[in-house]
Nucleic acid binder design. Sequence first.
RNA 1: GCGGGUGUAGCUCAGUGGUAGAGCGUCACGUUGCCAACGUGAAUGUCGUCGGUUCGAAUCCGAUCACCCGCUCCA
Length: 537
Amino acid sequence: MSETTTKRMEDIVALCRRRGFIFQSSEIYGGINGFWDYGPYGSELKRNLKNAWWEDIVHGDMVGPTGEPVKIVGVDCTIIMNPKVWEASGHVGGFADMMSTCRHCKRLVRTDHVWDMVHESPWFAALSELYADGVVDSPALVRWAQQKGKKLAPNLALVRNPEVTLSWLAERMADGQTAMGVQEFVQHLASEQVARDGLALPCPHCGGDLAEPKPFNLMFKTLVGAVEDPSNIAYLRPETAQGIFANFDNVVDSSRVKVPFGIAQIGKAFRNEVTPRNFTFRSREFEQMELEFFIHPSEAEQWYAWWRDNRYAWWKSIGLAGDNLILREHDRDELAHYAKEGAGTSDIEYRFPFTAPGFGELEGVAHRADFDLKAHAEHCGKGEKMRYFDQARNERYFPHVIEPSAGADRGALALLCEAYTPDESRASKVFMNFHPRVAPVKAGIFPLVAKDGMPEIAEKLHKELRRRHVVEMDAKQSIGKRYARMDECGTPYCITIDGDTANDQAVTIRERNTQSQERVALDKVGAFLDEKIHGDS
RNA sequence: GCGGGUGUAGCUCAGUGGUAGAGCGUCACGUUGCCAACGUGAAUGUCGUCGGUUCGAAUCCGAUCACCCGCUCCA
């Protein structure tokens, strides 16, 4: 990362703090890692982003790939749900996943997945071949360790210290009471100190030995009810999606929707991240804007492509129009467990100053197939009875899901980064180039000077406009200073009442980016703002 | 979790063992005639926190917290 981009992120963070966009949570007590508060302007910005999403997704008038209007309804689910929800979703197996850290490559692996992963690894395949007939061929093993093994499993005990490892293996063979399976054979090859530590569990990635398994779960735990008892454990949701899936039947039964349709939700989610990083980008408490769009399985491809393109265009429309925004189709091997066989997964990514020249995820669009609805059907015990009945097709099925899942905080952060525009020529040295739709303040209202009836006219205009728009009136200090302040918080328009206003009933409106001014009739100012904020331009 | 860096007013920083400072910003009053004008005045600090050394610590030592950077992690 270059110094200029690092520097720039620091400047953005400083501006966020200085102008009241984002503060560290509980800062007066030294803060808390991974939690952030939004100040006056920041909360407006984030609210504008969420409102824009909700208006366009839930209240929008989109036409889908089939030519039909796109039907979407909203829900607002609880943060704490029945813990079984998270068993069904795969977020928790029992109550805690055991995780092991590799002592060599430091990677974290789910302990119950270790052998599955080892069996899929190329170095395991090579070693099982060498043990195909159940005979230990030491010279062949040493040869492998000195050549291929160095690349495939650099931290395997056999590779690091063949003599010692093979001597333990020889001891085991000499003992020879029971036959040795290939798994135990490999464990021997992964163990350097058998007498002291016993047989090691090999790291699937590098062959190194895995440390003692520890319970590890990224979900926050809490207790429901005042009694402290393990049976009362519940979790703060790590994603909002499951509330939607768990309510699928409720929504279908109560709101006359039929497939294809969507259920949308905006809400907080919590992940106890190992390392919160990069300002608000990876927080432990964050807000998601999630849509689960339910479709007939045969239409997955076209709806997936449609939503992917639609969501990409949406982010562009609210101000991420530059080439910092990209749409990236996932490779097959990085797909989540629920999406392996699907139509695909894409990320909409933004080039943040701290990821540059790389990109960070803003929104994922995934074809989750029927993974979630099926899982909940199985876990709640209703099973096949929960299949959706499609009247038009006269068919029962679990609908497939296209999930556009966006981060509200990441979105707000991307808007802040994109808007941040250094400009040495102006007093503030920087202005925030927000799209009028998301700008925290739409207009500043200024009497050019605080006399000759100008403040009174400004006050009257302020009273009128504030019913429909977030506007700020300021009569103090020089006009240049007031413009500069508005530049720094990204207010797109400044309305100035001057000495002529009383006579011609008109004001000047200064546009933030160009600093140009136009004269607008006093009674047309509201319409002017409407047009700029909601119009196409 | 590992390694490196940083921490003094809202911001940028000065202050290397002896009374916590400057500029900018903020606020008030005056002035004002379209881009941080000017004058006068004012407020603002657990020197990140806790502990130790010392007659005395922003300064030296230890721990800790937070942020930034590089790994790791993100099911």
